[in-house]
């Protein structure tokens, strides 16, 4: 089941259902995924900017839409540029990534909790 890469390291077999995690180190060619990822990330950015500058919808809806765009942006960055899917064998990077998300959400969540103080005292 194992195969060898050009530098002689042995690759672990990819489990069924996890083929999308298979390494893509040896694949060469024009980096279409990266170019398209770049274009899409710019589109998402400018879409959010235009919506806000034009006050295109009511504030609450606007907030929801740009949050959705931000999530799409984050997924795009992780998938295309941050090596989410690349791994030799087990995708160890997913574990610290989960930890990073946990810390980020905990920090953002508690920050919102802390900064609600104005409604608490006024």
């Amino acid at each position: 089941m194992s195969e060898h890469t050009s530098d002689g390291t042995e690759l672990e077999a990819v489990e069924p259902g996890l083929e999308f995690l298979a390494p893509k180190f040896e694949v060469e060619g024009f980096p279409w995924a990266q170019v398209m990822g770049y274009v899409f990330s710019l589109l998402l950015t400018f879409a959010a900017l235009l919506l806000v500058v034009d006050h295109a919808m009511p504030p609450i809806l606007l907030l929801a839409v740009i949050l959705a765009l931000a999530l799409g942006q984050a997924g795009l960055q992780l998938g295309v540029f941050m090596h989410l899917r690349e791994s030799r064998g087990t995708a160890w990077q997913l574990l610290p990534l989960g930890l990073a998300f946990f810390i980020a959400f905990a920090l953002v969540g508690t920050s919102i909790w802390i900064m609600l103080f104005k409604t608490g005292v006024s």
Binding site: W113, I114, F117, G120, V121
Partner: peptide, 8 residues
């Protein structure tokens, strides 16, 4: 002392 409230 910002005064975020007793819980925080």
């Amino acid at each position: 002392t910002m005064g975020a409230g007793p819980t925080v």
